[in-house]
Design a protein around this nucleic acid. Structure first.
Lengths: 197, 197
DNA sequence: GTCTATATCTTGATAGAC
DNA sequence: GTCTATCAAGATATAGAC
């Protein structure tokens, strides 16, 4: 299978289109023909770049997780305090949601996971693991620095925080609301913070 | 359109099957033929009971919301303290998740909302509205009784609480985890409670 | 790398017999 | 109320020419 770093220009267009379509409609909600129309080639030509749909989506998810890790690294470099880091993290989701109420790619695929090919579920699992591990470490550091409440285990806070972000997008979309994950994160953060910004 | 209270025995079987299939695979993940196989009649016979797929799913969602409202009423009758009520509420989601990692029906439909018929999105909207209104009122009462933290608006806590429950199911499923919404709710509740149980 | 043509299957939905 | 037969559309995927 191709790695997302070795894609031709057209293959990258295909991945871009697929990523957006999944975030809007889910795995079962888009077809090779939808992609063909977007990138301007015919349906069978897509198969030249990605022989199966599940391979394509697997590459999409791998690139998505990689970009997320780049963002996480950037947040650590730009912010020192745990609250600021978590707030910047929530902004990642908010920026996604602001694009036509797009869901997190792996939030959408996670919802569909019970009927998805195993190679895709594997990537979804990896995404959540990466995010929960990072959040746990950031929260842990915040607790040690006396910035965050120590009443809960860092891992439990991480799970609650990520859950509320993913859930806020689902509910916001279901209610056609412009209010998205950032607001929910802010509420949650204010209950966890010991100091005021 | 038929009301869910006036369904024939077979129509009810159809609604039951559709409900379960949506919670497992989503709107775009099941077909009339899937239902036909489950209830034991042929595909065109389903159309006799529900002429279109979107009508069927609309009835499914209406019944789902109605049953939820019955559960909410029951919780108010069985528990007096806000914490106990919210904990019992979380148990509703946990019981659903324990059935083959079923998602909340409207959580799944909410994720798919951008590509769903409008009459279904309407029902999804109603479900979330009913739940948020109820949660807000329960939390409000808990704050007035000195049981819950008053630092946040009751509506904001309601949105965070529901978001974390819906999101926990999505992430749990994506990670194939047996740990579900109940655990996340417990973490969240402990940060909101002023008294210990 | 892209195309046309095609295979095969599944989809939601309809017509009409029983 | 259920059936068989059928439809038109759309799905993933392959074959082979250019």
């Amino acid at each position: 299978m191709k790695h997302f770093s070795e894609l031709s220009a057209m293959a990258e267009h295909v991945v871009n289109a697929a990523e957006s379509l999944i975030q809007e409609r889910g795995y079962n909600g888009f077809s090779y023909d939808d992609i063909a129309r977007i990138v301007g080639i015919k349906k069978p030509s897509i198969h030249h770049h990605f022989s199966t749909k599940s391979e394509l989506v697997s590459v999409v998810a791998q690139r998505y997780t990689h970009r997320f890790r780049e963002n996480l690294l950037q947040i650590e470099g730009q912010h020192a305090k745990a609250q600021d880091r978590l707030s910047a993290y929530a902004t990642l989701f908010e920026e996604t949601y602001k694009i036509d109420q797009h869901l997190c790619l792996c939030g959408m695929l996670g919802a569909e996971a019970s009927s998805l090919p195993e190679n895709i579920v594997l990537e979804v699992h990896r995404f959540f693991e990466v995010n929960l591990d990072w959040l746990t470490q950031i929260i842990e550091a915040g607790q040690r620095a006396g910035q965050l409440n120590k009443a809960l285990f860092s891992r439990d806070i991480a799970e609650t925080f990520l859950s509320s972000l993913e859930g806020a997008m689902v509910i916001g979309r279901g209610m056609r609301s412009t209010i998205g994950p950032a607001k929910i994160a802010q509420s949650l953060l204010s209950t966890l913070s010991l100091t005021t910004a």
